[in-house]
Design a protein around this nucleic acid. Structure first.
Lengths: 319, 319
DNA sequence: CTGTTAGCGCTTTCAA
DNA sequence: TTGAAAGCGCTAACAG
């Protein structure tokens, strides 16, 4: 250790000064600090980690950081992690579920824990991860056995509120733009739609991306529904763009709802009727759950609130 | 090493099997692989890093991951990094320039290199970082001494194109919503505006956020300008939202331009006239630059292209 | 081809 | 209060 030599002390003393765990005489402490400042020395986290068996690092795996929803979750995690002097390692799986398992395993080699946004990962893989990864927290999905702590949104309630809102407006037939097949969050939403009384729901295959929304919009309009219920704000953005290009007014020609309330929702024209979620809060809570010791709070559920804006109105024929 | 014992070989052999650097007999290789698979063993990157002096990790420091612009840059980096078997460490400085220096120093302890988006960091700090951090690449700013490799957008050219476009439409007076004070990118944009002939430019203090745009919109309208030139798409989004709330039509009442062409721009109503930048490409190029050996490509400049959409039109009085 | 040895940079015993 | 020594998990050099 350069610092030790320079200051004429043992490496152990330098370590003690820096960590402050054991008492060091004022004289030596001064000498060490001087040298540390001059050289700009900082201990290597790799070495510290090796010794302590902890890296002070948290991993985040997300399907698409270009989607503000996941970017915000990540931001929530980094914010909380920095507060605890943790670093954040991130992997973008580029909407490819087959990469998710490996991504987690890889991050788990480094990080003390992993926060996973993997809506479509097969249950089996998830269970395998639960065994292999010490601290694992899922965001937006719950595993079958509830073995993994999770932060989820009550998608069922949120979608229920959207359905009720549309029905109250007089809609009788809505087109639902489905999210990723096999996603827990998608399943929950759909369940609410199926249960919604007084509302005929035609399902349209879609996906999680803006472009998926654009592509699905035509099919949604062809169903003759008076309202389009999009899987997320991000998807709704694509729908809106397609509708505008085709001269279909919202909500005059068709009503449109989103889900998530990303920054976008309030800013669009028309402003989107959607459900509010504190997205950064999702990340923050996942962080908290990761290091919560007791089993008591192993699952956190956030209930979204309906925000009625300008993209929904009574159907044309009912006016 | 558990694996070694279990397989009845030396740790060195296990290492050789896993790294594939040195020849190992088929028999032993099989035994080792069996045990590795059974135990799910993976070597600790911390130990590997300690030994090799490299962590296979790249750091990214950004002011706000909630801003799609930076989220996309990050995505560009992670994508490229994963391709080279590197992990990505990220820090969000939450738009606080005073955190940037520390954030880089902190990441530099871990990472083999740091990609820095810090438009407002004082030159002195930047110079200090250049000395202390081995591999440092700046995105969207160039240091005074060109000592740091950088990936920049030709903001001057981009803003020049926007000015020319507005002038061609017949605008004579535009309001410019300034970005963060002291930012290199901001300076470059403003330079183009000042040089733009035939155009009176009134500058309005703003900032990098959606809400900054909302706040500045009123002042921009008060200038009597026939067009609002926003610092970025993100800011323009805020402006658009304010204008809509106040019943001012775009481009009927006022023209509006963005900058960056984030996913949003094309989707808004009206679709935003802006400049196109391959944002993910910025991140990817920063990554490439980080490990480029020669000095030849120490600076990469991306020239944005004007995209004329629906948010600009001739001024009302000229119609 | 394979095992033994040393040591990456640090912290934490254990002695002094 | 301080220093010497051991060792975290791994790999490269050196023997065999």
């Amino acid at each position: 250790m350069d610092v030790a030599r320079e200051a004429g002390v043992s490496p152990a003393t330098v370590s003690r000064v820096l960590s402050g765990t054991k008492p060091v005489s004022a004289e030596l402490e001064r000498r060490v600090r001087d040298v540390v400042d001059t050289l700009g020395y900082r201990p290597s986290p790799a070495a510290q980690g090796l010794l302590r068996g902890t890296s002070h690092t948290v991993g985040v795996v997300a399907p698409d950081l270009g989607n503000p929803y996941f970017a915000e979750i990540l931001k929530g995690v980094t914010g909380a992690a920095e507060g605890a002097d943790f670093r954040t390692l991130v992997t973008d799986t580029d909407e490819r579920p087959d990469r998710e398992y490996e991504a987690v395993m890889e991050l788990a080699r480094w990080a003390d824990g992993v926060i996973l946004c993997a809506p479509r990962m097969p249950e089996k893989q998830l269970a395998a991860l639960a065994d292999r990864v010490g601290r694992l927290v899922c965001v937006n999905r719950r595993d079958a056995e509830h073995a993994i702590p999770s932060v989820t949104v009550d998608f069922h309630a949120g979608m229920g509120a959207i359905c009720a809102h549309l029905r109250d407006l007089g809609h009788r037939h809505v087109a639902y733009l489905r999210g990723p097949e096999g996603a827990w969050s998608e399943h929950e939403r759909r369940r609410a739609l199926v249960e919604a009384g007084g509302l005929k729901v035609t399902q349209v295959t879609c996906g999680p991306d803006i472009d998926d929304g654009r592509r699905a919009a035509a099919e949604a309009m062809a169903t003759g529904a008076s309202a389009i219920v999009a899987f997320s704000d991000y998807v709704a953005l694509g729908v809106l763009s397609w509708l505008r290009e085709h001269g279909i007014r919202v909500p005059g020609g068709v009503s449109l709802t989103g889900f998530d309330d990303t920054v976008l929702a309030a800013m669009l024209s028309p402003a989107l009727t959607t459900t509010t979620i504190d997205t950064q809060g999702l990340g923050r809570r996942a962080w908290e759950l990761m290091f919560a010791d007791g089993e008591e709070t192993a699952d956190v559920t956030v209930t979204p609130e309906l925000v009625v804006r300008a993209s929904t109105a009574p159907p044309a024929q009912a006016r």
